[in-house]
């Protein structure tokens, strides 16, 4: 862990899955900057504006990153840019459908081979939150950092109690379990308190 943190201080040529998983902002930025021009160039083939293309790039990047964090991507079978293009193409297609814009040619958006497979293995759709879930989000964000981290490890990254214990330096699994129950209790109480 420490070693990779030192390594990423300098500009790296090959970013690994582990580098991305550390959640380091330096890596996040480097990957963003390295793939941006390539992606925008590719996206210009379609009928969206430059601003929309940047927006799509960011959304594709977020989806890619989420799938790394939740363990859906277990190893790079393709280059990072292939993942981004695959997701990006899907998002562009979605937007064009929504905007009801005409495509220059239907063929251009047919996905082929590698990119197609990528899409199938990832979690892409983002559901809008219901009002209860908006509340959960709001009160989750009012929790202390320790609670937010713990619940994020569990629900967002799918860590087991044991993995959380190691990642966050807890003394035992029971301590993690107790902490998790406390955080959940606080969350429930805060939501209930709003109605009182």
């Amino acid at each position: 862990m420490k070693y990779s943190a030192i390594k990423v201080k300098e500009r790296k040529l090959h970013i690994t899955l582990e580098d991305l998983k550390t959640g380091s902002d330096t890596v996040l930025k480097q990957v963003y900057n390295d793939n941006r021009a390539k992606f925008l160039n590719f996206a210009r083939r379609y009928s969206l504006s430059e601003e929309e293309n940047i927006d799509v790039y960011q959304d594709a990047y977020i989806i890619f990153y989420e799938n790394i964090m939740n363990g859906k991507v277990e190893g790079f079978t393709s280059s990072i840019s292939t993942y981004l293009f695959g997701i990006g193409k899907h998002l562009i297609f979605d937007r064009i459908k929504k905007n009801k814009r005409l495509l220059h040619s239907e063929f251009e958006l047919t996905m082929i081979g590698e990119e197609d497979q990528i899409i199938n293995s990832l979690e892409i759709e983002e559901e809008a939150l219901t009002s209860e879930q908006e509340l959960l989000k709001h009160y989750f964000e009012t929790l202390g950092k320790k609670c937010q981290d713990l619940l994020t490890y569990f629900y967002y990254r799918g860590y087991t109690i044991q993995e959380i214990m190691i990642a966050e330096n807890y003394n035992s699994e029971n301590v993690v379990k107790a902490a998790k129950s406390r955080c959940m209790k606080t969350l429930r109480e805060r939501i209930q308190a709003k109605d009182d």
Partner: peptide, 28 residues
Amino acid sequence: YEKGLKLAIKKSQSEKLKSKLASFEKEI
């Protein structure tokens, strides 16, 4: 309830990420 919390956390994370990306973009 827990599934909702999972989605809420995901949203919260993606909003944080989006604002980070926006700051990279601004720098560019």
